[in-house]
Design a protein around this nucleic acid. Structure first.
Lengths: 247, 247
DNA sequence: GAACATTCCGTACGGCGTACGGTACACCGT
DNA sequence: ACGGTGTACCGTACGCCGTACGGAATGTTC
């Protein structure tokens, strides 16, 4: 199933949880922190589809329903997982010009998605307003201060870059994990597809796809997502640079 | 459960299905086409989480297991849904300069995601090699022909734009459907969050977020995803234009 | 009419999230 | 030391899910 988050429960409870207003330990040593950490482990390792309350509980040596003492439901748990991993992005002192800073922000977001591919599958609308989300936002906005852009423009520009990163990361991350998940290298996969495709594919009907697909397939193995990421990022930054220059 | 696709089944069977090598009707009038169309309806209307074999069958007035006569499993059904909706993108005669053409491609992809938000939740690695996917690829590459870019560069540039669109669409589409899904307008949602956030949020600690967040929130309601989409797209196209000019 | 192929589907299994209600523990006042 | 009470824990159960399996129903072919 697609991954729902932001449970339908009490928003005040969610907020208290996110900011860890009262993180006590139970008698088995259970705690919100431990539950979230375990859930992240499972999602990182086996994908968000493998994340279930029962599995989290099992790994913690605890009954499934015990989790509900600490967390209202799975939706809220996912919210907590999100805020948790957003806290791990490195945030070096922002040196250099805005472009170097923004580039670093982009790369560190890509790294985040690489570490936690499931982030790409959870919705981003109305995100969990936790401390780490806000800290990340605050830090990333900093990359564009001092450029002469207005506050609103800074927000928009950052949003655009993050949108690009998330879209490109989706391709890059999935490409990177496809061999592992399917037990099949890209080459092997293509070796299976190609002869099947040849039977139905008509180069006359799709001349451009035939030519470019062949060229691209030859240039790098099937698809070099990293290269595409870099290219697009530089073009986007070029565009933003021109925009700033015109200000 | 994030949404898995590309079933583990026989690739030859999948390919035959995608290209509709043998789409017969059963005695109840069932067919691959009808199953796929119904599944798309459900996913469009109630989200991909609401898509289940039982629901598809029910809507078709048929037992759940009957679907398996036509489709190997849910994974393959999702593959078929993907190729199906990729076939609906409008593809007007490509007139004007490359920039107008590429802009149109971007916008038509955004429209596609708007119509079928679940597309954003299914993986894109090793996509189902159906006729519509290939036709779309062929058409979209055409936007960048005659620019002096090499075939490989054309592929990379298109990939970048599509990555941006998918990332930005994720934000835009989710923002658009959040009120409907949650039964809460953005304003209402914020009215609940704001006072809770105020209790834990320290403007001293996050000065930039406080200032910019306030400015952005005031400028347009909470977040104007369309505006951000447009801004980023133009910057990216500006960057590509500069790249082409340098060739 | 018989033989066969194919379509349809009832049942069942192991998984899921979680409502509900019971048990057992930790801590308190005495 | 002991009884009382709040809370942490969790067994069971319900209604979902995808789909394996085997049988029933319906053509189709001689």
């Amino acid at each position: 199933m697609a991954v729902e988050h932001t449970g339908t429960g009490d928003p005040a409870r969610s907020m208290a949880l996110l900011w860890r207003a009262a993180d006590r330990e139970g008698r088995t040593g259970l705690s919100v922190d431990k539950i979230v950490a375990t859930a992240v482990e499972i999602a990182d390792g086996d994908g968000i589809t493998a994340l279930s309350m029962r599995r989290v509980a099992e790994r913690l040596g605890v009954g499934a329903m015990s989790l509900y003492t600490y967390v209202p439901g799975k939706g809220e748990l996912v919210d907590l997982m999100i805020d948790q991993v957003l806290g791990e992005t490195e945030r070096p002192e922002q040196a250099g010009d805005w472009r170097a800073r923004l580039e670093q922000v982009a790369r560190s977001n890509l790294a985040l998605y690489r570490r936690h591919p499931w982030l790409l599958q959870v919705g981003t609308a109305r995100p969990p307003m936790g401390p780490n989300l806000i800290a990340k936002y605050d830090y990333e906005l900093g990359a564009l201060t001092g450029t002469g852009l207005s506050d609103v423009e800074i927000d928009t520009a950052l949003t655009s870059v993050l949108a690009y990163v998330s879209g490109a990361a989706q391709t890059a991350v999935e490409a990177a994990q496809a061999p592992d998940r399917s037990g099949m290298t890209d080459d092997a996969w293509w070796a299976v597809q190609a002869p099947l495709l040849e039977k139905v594919f008509d180069p006359q009907r799709f001349p451009v796809a035939a030519r470019v697909g062949a060229a691209a397939g030859e240039a790098y193995g099937l698809v070099d997502a990293d290269h595409a990421f870099e290219f697009g990022l530089q073009r986007l930054l070029d565009g933003i640079e021109a925009f700033i220059a015109k200000r």
